[in-house]
């Protein structure tokens, strides 16, 4: 007797967000990156199409990295001392198709760069690299509300992805993103209801849902990974069942969370039973990424070149049978 497989067909789908604009589209990017668009759960190609593969963005900073573990800094080399060289290396050597630039230097504790200087940095970066950009703030809400709008303006028409908008503070950023033709990251604290609410608030201001990317706030492997994992699965199931307000692609800051865990950083000398930190940190970043990809991550912001290489290869083999 032939086995009747169980095929699940869904009413809804994930929206597709396009990051970057080419010359023909009014920007100057050499390529665009499309994320989202899933019509079902990840990698079940026999029942649902997954038109766009998950994409990794290299994380770069506008200043040399602070508090990054030695192993990570070593893997990138001396270029990290020059943000432009760092960004260029990601594109030319590591073949990054998209970069995520963090405006850390604007933070009051990290140099307190002015909003004008930050915007200038973005203008220059756009000239140095031709891939699409994700631009995120320094983490200081007050400062970011000054800096990000000017960065949006500096990158006008380049269709960047800019973040993050939070429930308590989204209007300024939504306004800037609308004015300058970008997409927005909507960040919610591992809470599906807030994610939904925030998407509604943002779209009420006139930014369409396909220009929103949800940051569900992940924890690294061993540090609350399972909370985001399940929130993402729940949101994705709701989206596929037809709820457009949670049907945005997910962005996950894998590198940022991984590289502050003890397991990624501490030396083998201190913890002999854990093995060499060089491999351990990379493993921590790739396993975090792999689990989130299985939960539906569309865009992963990562740091270690080896980890990016391995996860890219993984994505490639996952997508093989999609054709």
């Amino acid at each position: 007797m032939a086995t009747q497989l169980m095929i699940e067909k869904w009413l809804g789908n994930v929206s597709t967000t396009t990051i970057g604009a080419t010359k023909a589209e009014g920007g100057t990017r050499a390529n665009v990156v499309k994320i989202g668009g899933e019509q079902g759960l990840p990698f079940l190609f026999q029942e649902a199409a997954m038109p766009n593969k998950p994409v990794i963005a290299f994380e770069v900073w506008d200043i040399p990295p602070v508090d990054w573990p030695d192993e990570l800094v070593k893997s990138l080399g001396s270029v990290v001392n020059d943000p432009f060289a760092w960004a260029e290396k990601c594109v030319s050597e590591y073949k990054a198709k998209i970069l995520c630039v963090r405006m850390q230097g604007a933070h009051p504790d990290f140099g307190n760069k002015s909003a004008d200087d930050s915007a200038k940095f973005i203008s220059q970066l756009l000239k140095k690299v031709s891939v699409p950009l994700i631009i995120v703030g320094s983490g200081d809400d007050q400062k970011d509300s000054q800096v990000l709008p000017l960065c949006c303006e500096a990158a006008k028409s380049e269709r960047c992805l800019v973040g993050s908008a939070v429930q308590e503070n989204y209007k300024t950023l939504v306004g800037a993103v609308l004015a300058d033709g970008h997409n927005i990251i909507a960040e919610s604290p591992i809470d599906i209801n807030i994610a939904k609410q925030l998407n509604i608030l943002i779209s009420d201001m006139g930014l369409s849902l396909d220009r929103i990317v949800i940051n569900p706030t992940i924890g690294a492997l061993g540090y609350g990974l399972e909370y985001a994992y399940s929130i993402m699965e729940r949101a994705r199931l709701a989206a596929l069942a037809g709820d457009k307000t949670v049907g945005s692609p997910f962005i996950c800051f894998v590198g940022q969370e991984t590289w502050r865990t003890k397991e990624a950083m501490i030396s083998q000398k201190e913890f002999p039973a854990w093995g060499p930190e060089a491999q351990r940190g990379v493993a921590w970043e790739i396993v975090t990424a792999a689990a989130l990809i299985q939960a539906g991550a569309d865009l992963l912001v990562m740091r270690h070149p080896k980890a990016v290489e391995k996860v890219n290869k993984y994505i490639g083999s996952l997508m093989e049978s999609s054709l």
């Binding site: 397991e263 396993v287 689990a291 299985q294």
Partner: peptide, 29 residues
């Protein structure tokens, strides 16, 4: 590393038993 991502996938997606080769502490951890 490639073994680790693959095993990670099956841990998330319903495997009951997984057999692998790599016996490195950092990978198992």
């Amino acid at each position: 590393y490639e073994e680790a991502v693959e095993v990670a996938t099956y841990i998330s997606k319903y495997a009951g038993v997984i057999l692998m080769k790599g016996i490195e502490a950092w990978e198992s951890l």
